[in-house]
Amino acid sequence: MITTYTENIHDIALNTFEVTCFMFPMDEWEIEEDELEYPDGSTRSIVEFEGAAQGAMMINPNDSLLTAIAANMLGIDEPSEEEKEGALCEIANIICGNTVPIFAKDDKICVIKPPRIAEQDEDAATLFPNLHHEKVNVLLDEGIVEISIYVEQD
């Protein structure tokens, strides 16, 4: 069986959300249409990487998921904006750190740079032009996250 990059990213993301935030995967048919709130890009985390693989990952959760990530990771009911952004960056770091080796060209170390919150007007396609792009939506019981990876390929 051939596993595609998007399947790998999806599985890594699901495992990260399950282990770190106690969330569970959902199928689209399990969610009511009016609850299917796709991310609007208002809070996104970018993690760049270099070394054995070069590129960047962008994690874009919807509002309900963003709050749930911080609440579950920190064990608090009402996380602040700063806590939400910090938790999103940490999730992005874990997902990216586990994903990048899939794209590694050799045995060199993959250097994962510190995650950051994207500016509102930052466009990943403009930031990382000419890179191979894979995108996957992950549906969870607490919300939806869109994960994009931009990676240099030969």
Binding site: N15, T16, V19, T20, A52, N93, I94, C96, G97, N98, P101, D107, K108, I109, C110, I112
Partner: peptide
């Protein structure tokens, strides 16, 4: 504690007599 999966880096950690916890962890 790291997301590291490079065998050389993990070996270096173990040579310094440290354990390794891969993120995410239960």
């Amino acid at each position: 504690v790291s997301t590291e999966s490079n065998p050389e880096r993990i070996e270096k950690i173990q040579k310094l007599n440290a354990g390794f916890v891969h993120k995410p962890f239960t």
